[in-house]
Design a protein around this nucleic acid. Structure first.
Lengths: 186, 186
DNA sequence: ACTACTGATGACAGCGACTGACATCGCGGC
DNA sequence: GCCGCGATGTCAGTCGCTGTCATCAGTAGT
């Protein structure tokens, strides 16, 4: 007889996404999520810093992929390095997570508080990329601009990938968006 | 005998910035802010949607300036239009608000929750700029990229303007940053 | 002058997010 | 077989935030 079932964290995440999709973020209490997962509210807050964070766990892993992509890239042109990192990070979003990503994004797009959290995560990502670029000897301002541009390209590309009817894989889309940005500022 | 002193909103904003700077955002309760301003907690929430918003009132005006700058600009090149809007919006930050802006930014930089709110405001700004560009007949993706780039330039430029030792006025800095972005992607 | 109405505020009760402190108990190590 | 660890439960409490109703100076209409 086990005292508690394993996978509490994953159960909480699944329960949260399900409830948020059905009742909305504000219409769901943490106690409800916990009960759905067979746990208590207090345990929820032991796994996630706050109610929003349950939708953003794993984001650190994503950030590490980006930074690793920058560190492993060749050359010294900031934009080229960022482009390489974009390629590497797409591994985080395989084709079979497209539907799940869409469902999650719909929940986020429906709540300003969740949008704030997403923006903070992306901002931290840009900061981590900036640091990684500077470690390669790139000057502060170009590093920040390249990182911000990279994140902007990722955002636009990701939204496109999620969109209804879109069938191109994420890496292809990202290359196209980066090309558009380049020609825009040429 | 007046029933209540005028300027409640401004008193609350001043009290909030003062307390946040002294005790930190988390270390300050809304009731304390209200008491400092000679009001009650309930009245605070009649003036501001939430505790964070007291630092971001006036942001709508800022957004309108940007959009107006886009609408009044000449030409069809997205980046040129955005550059013109950047010029116009600097009127929101005259030289004598530099010290105040720095104090406010220090408070924001010290709290993740406030950073989230700032990012949401900037994101909304980018969205409004995108819409304004599209109304000028610019295609969606170039419009979004130009708007995001414009906001990125503003962020980097504003941070520079605020920085210790910096003396150039904001418009000059913004032109320089935009030039850097251009040469970066050339 | 009397009355009705408005508009900013106060008072109060209540919900939900989040936290700290302490108890519980299966499991693995010794 | 005992002991400590670690994930969980329980409970009380703070604070952000909201709905509701009362208050009362000033204003407009009669």
């Amino acid at each position: 007889m086990v005292r508690w079932q394993p996978g509490a964290r994953e159960r909480l995440q699944a329960a949260a996404l399900e409830r948020f999709a059905a009742e909305g973020f504000d219409g769901t209490t943490v106690a409800e999520i916990a009960a759905t997962a067979g746990l208590t509210e207090r345990t929820f807050f032991r796994h996630f810093a706050d109610k929003r964070e349950v939708l953003f766990a794993g984001q650190d892993e994503f950030e590490r992929l980006f930074v690793a992509g920058i560190e492993d890239a060749d050359g010294t042109d900031p934009i080229a390095v960022v482009a390489a990192a974009l390629e590497g990070a797409t591994g985080f979003f395989p084709e079979d997570r497209r539907a799940w990503s869409r469902a999650r994004q719909e929940v986020i797009d429906a709540d300003p508080g969740l949008q704030e959290r997403e923006l903070l995560k992306l901002s931290k990502l840009a900061g981590a990329m900036t640091d990684a670029l500077r470690r390669r000897g790139i000057d502060p301002t170009p590093a920040a601009l390249a990182a911000e541009s990279g994140v902007a390209v990722f955002r636009v590309g990701f939204a496109t990938w999620i969109a209804e009817g879109e069938e191109r894989p994420l890496p292809v889309i990202l290359r196209a968006v980066l090309g558009e940005l380049r020609s825009l500022l040429a």
